[in-house]
């Protein structure tokens, strides 16, 4: 505790003697957060443990914190069926396409509308803000997408609607508004048009903000299952989350896994896979990319959220 309190500037500078109550509070506070963090990490730890447990051990032991003989058979099986690799590809296409489109279109819109002297600026702002409070609703959206635009069973139905999100638009626009105008003006005098200014001057300055937005959109798309369920009829076009939802939440084993019972190893002996482990393995596999990029993006998103909060 003493080494910890030394780091705090206030206490370091003034050499404050803490009261007993304050010390007790510190102990309580630190233990509370350790407990809270453990509570958050443990479920993840648990699904990884189950995904690595063999069927025999899962059936035999009353409960398992960590398997005695960890095995990757669930993962081997999952990636041997076409299901998960294909869903990975589909989800990757949707997430990458949607994110690229969203960042490009939203930032262009935000830049254009950050120039308040443009004719029609107010009209376009109201035009966008209305969609925050009012939307067609589930069925009108569905009819529009399938019958008017004819995008059912087409991955574009998952990618295109993410092009503009008004919340993200507001975040990017308020970032652009606080940029100093002097750079733009000198470029303007040199004869650059707005397009050149945006791509050559503004974008390089806004990488952290745009990265934050890209991350929000990518996480949203990676985690989405509802649009996929509404618009995709072919199981081959399902996103990862939808497949896991059908498998775990609705307990319907995917078509590609129907052969689970007749599974044989190389010598022809039947293999019994731990089905709970299989479910957990698919969940882990779908979450891993998100957890993998998390440390790299963490420093960005705190800033991004704050920009949005100031503007509201």
């Amino acid at each position: 505790m003493t080494s910890i309190s030394k780091k705090h500037s206030l206490h370091k500078k003034n050499k404050i003697r803490q009261s007993l109550g304050s010390k007790i509070f510190d102990v309580f506070n630190v233990s509370f957060f350790i407990l809270f963090a453990a509570l958050i990490i443990f479920p993840f730890f648990n699904i990884i443990a189950i995904s690595l447990t063999s069927n025999a051990e899962f059936m035999r032991e009353p409960f398992i914190i960590w398997p005695k003989a960890p095995t990757f058979e669930a993962y081997n099986y999952l990636f041997s069926t076409p299901l998960i690799p294909r869903a990975y590809l589909v989800t990757l296409i949707v997430a990458a396409g949607g994110t690229g489109l969203a960042v490009l279109v939203t930032s262009m819109l935000a830049y254009g509308l950050s120039k308040k002297n443009m004719r029609g600026h107010k009209f376009f702002m109201i035009y966008l803000l209305i969609t925050m409070f009012f939307s067609g609703g589930l069925i009108p959206n569905y009819i529009n997408m399938t019958r008017v635009l004819g995008l059912s069973n087409n991955l574009l139905a998952l990618i295109l609607p993410s092009a503009v999100n008004v919340f993200n638009f507001i975040i990017i626009r308020s970032f652009f508004l606080q940029l100093p105008t002097s750079l733009e003006e000198s470029a303007k005098i040199d004869g650059a048009n707005d397009l050149v200014i945006l791509f050559r001057i503004i974008y390089p300055l806004s990488i952290p903000t745009l990265a934050t937005i890209a991350m929000f959109v990518a996480v949203g798309l990676w985690n989405s299952w509802f649009a996929s369920m509404l618009y995709m009829r072919d199981e081959k076009l399902y996103t990862l989350q939808l497949i896991i939802r059908n498998y775990v939440v609705r307990e319907a084993r995917p078509a590609d896994m129907q052969a689970l019972e007749g599974l044989r190893d190389a010598a022809g002996n039947p293999i019994h896979l731990n089905e709970t482990g299989l479910k957990m393995a698919s969940a882990v596999a779908s979450t891993l990319p998100m957890l993998g990029i998390y440390p790299f993006i963490q420093k960005y998103f705190e800033k991004g959220v704050t920009i949005g909060a100031i503007k509201g």
């Binding site: 279109v105 939203t106 262009m108 819109l109 830049y111 254009g112 509308l113 120039k115 443009m118 376009f124 035009y127 966008l128 969609t131 009012f134 939307s135 067609g136 609703g137 069925i139 009108p140 959206n141 009819i143 529009n144 008017v148 635009l149 295109l160 609607p161 092009a163 503009v164 638009f169 048009n193 707005d194 397009l195 945006l198």
Partner: peptide, 24 residues
């Protein structure tokens, strides 16, 4: 150029946010 920049966004909002409103 500014109008050109906002055009894709305005169209996307119209197609995916406003067109469904008629369905109400």
């Amino acid at each position: 150029w500014l109008y050109l920049l906002i055009l894709p966004g305005i169209i996307a909002v119209f197609v995916f946010r406003y067109m469904p409103m008629y369905g109400i």
